[in-house]
Design a protein around this nucleic acid. Structure first.
Lengths: 263, 263
DNA sequence: GCAGCTGTATCGGATGACAATACATTGCTG
DNA sequence: CAGCAATGTATTGTCATCCGATACAGCTGC
């Protein structure tokens, strides 16, 4: 009787050290990635490619461990609080976040605009910390949120420090779906921005993610010079002329990055 | 040859549905809880009570899945970015966080002080969202950070809505270690604050976690009336008289909680 | 150069994960 | 109102997967 294989993208073949049960378990947690509410056993089974039995056992285990909980109405399961403990450990132990946090707080105090730190992850820039200012239109504020590398100032600044082949790769695989009417979707236009970022040492993005928003991004390289993250300063176009925003904030952001690198 | 059992607090006995490998895997991630840097296989094995072999296999699996990575210097492993994806899913799907986020943003806009949402978890209040204001002395800002229920205004407000036996339990098990010179450590003093909170509908905490800080907390109950979270408004004693802080902010916080409950 | 630590690799044996199947409830729908 | 398709839960026997011991290479610091 052939044992049903789960998610095909999970390596497993010929790997003596690979613990299948664990991978299957994690795939259960990942099943919530594109969910919009609680997931039932059946849904989890479908999304992960697992048997209903497997889903049952794994969910059962996660419940005992606290990571999953039965939804209030008894139909379906949701991620539960212990997940946040993992997050906290990750952020707490991440050397970059550790060094950057106090500096970003300083920075925010000076610029009085939203400041955040996002981590480079290929196609995505993932927000690790966000220190907002006055307004904040919606709750994309959440830690762990991510946006495409191709449409953030930080992403442009990061790509400006990458070897061209890697940039090509990112652009080739990018979905390039616009988030606003002004989101750049033409690869060449994005390349131009990257080139500008390379020359200036920072990138300026206008209304790429949110209408009315101007964002300035500076990349943070690791010891070997490879970009691994970026900081942003974001403001409102109702208060700022873009060039003025750049002139005022670019030096401060660059200075902050220098501090982080040498911290 | 007796098989070494891992963490004793992990249930496992006589549970046909329990997937041991998964629990062991999660215990590896949890091993980072009280770590202060990368962990080697040996350290992980010790902390989890697993065999070095088991640690190796589980770590290997997590690496393939992306959750762990070899530290920069090749010695030890750390949690990696995909952890943040889980976080984001948790926050995004948590009904309370979902409802509360926009309301807290509004609130912060009005009060112009730090506002945050913390989730009740027995002994702890775990920060799920923090929207800070001007200053912020250190980076305990991180999502997933937690503080004892017994020394936060939110915790007091939560306990004021709990049945007395549960309060007793929390107080009995609390470590009661002071975080500042003014942290209340006498159970009776804490009970007094809880009683005050019961009467007022909110709690006011002075320098319980941080010197110079005044915090006002209001509990959020679920549909059945059980408290599950709290919101805080926190300000500086250099700018506020405590009573004035309460008078101004208590109604706003209460109003926010009402909005969250009915949202 | 030894002792102790890294991370990595291999291997036979039996534990423990496996899928199928059955059941009690719930809620929708014909 | 009946019946079907969901839900979450429980049990069982088979065999593949995870298991721990052991060995190795590379590094650090006695």
């Amino acid at each position: 009787m052939p044992r049903k294989n789960h998610a095909p993208d999970v390596p497993q073949a010929e790997d003596a050290l690979f613990v299948q049960s664990l991978a299957r378990g994690m795939s259960v947690l990942e099943a919530f990635r594109d969910a919009d509410g609680a997931l039932s056993l059946g849904q989890i089974a479908t999304r992960t490619g697992l048997t209903r039995s497997a889903a049952q056992r794994l969910v059962h285990t996660f419940r005992k461990l606290g990571y999953l909980t039965l939804a209030e109405d008894g139909r379906g399961f949701r991620l539960d609080l212990p997940i946040l403990d993992l997050t906290h450990d990750y952020l707490r132990l991440n050397p970059l976040v550790r060094r950057a946090s106090p500096i970003l707080l300083d920075l925010r105090r000076n610029v009085r605009e939203r400041v955040d730190l996002s981590l480079f992850d290929g196609q995505r820039m993932v927000y690790a910390a966000r220190m907002q200012s006055k307004r904040e239109t919606f709750f994309a504020t959440l830690v762990g949120n991510s946006v495409p590398t191709t449409c953030t100032s930080g992403g442009w600044a990061v790509m400006a420090m990458l070897p061209p082949t890697e940039v090509d790769q990112i652009l080739a695989q990018a979905s390039l779906q616009p988030l606003t009417p002004r989101t750049l979707t033409d690869p060449q236009a994005i390349r131009d921005q990257i080139e500008l970022a390379r020359q200036a040492g920072h990138a300026l993005a206008l209304e790429q993610i949110l209408m009315g928003e101007v964002a300035l991004g500076v990349a943070i390289p690791d010891a070997s010079g490879r970009p691994i993250a970026a900081i942003h300063i974001a403001g409102s176009l109702s208060e700022w002329d873009p060039e003025e925003f750049r002139r005022r904030n670019a030096p401060l952001a660059a200075e902050a990055v220098r501090s982080i690198m040498s911290a």
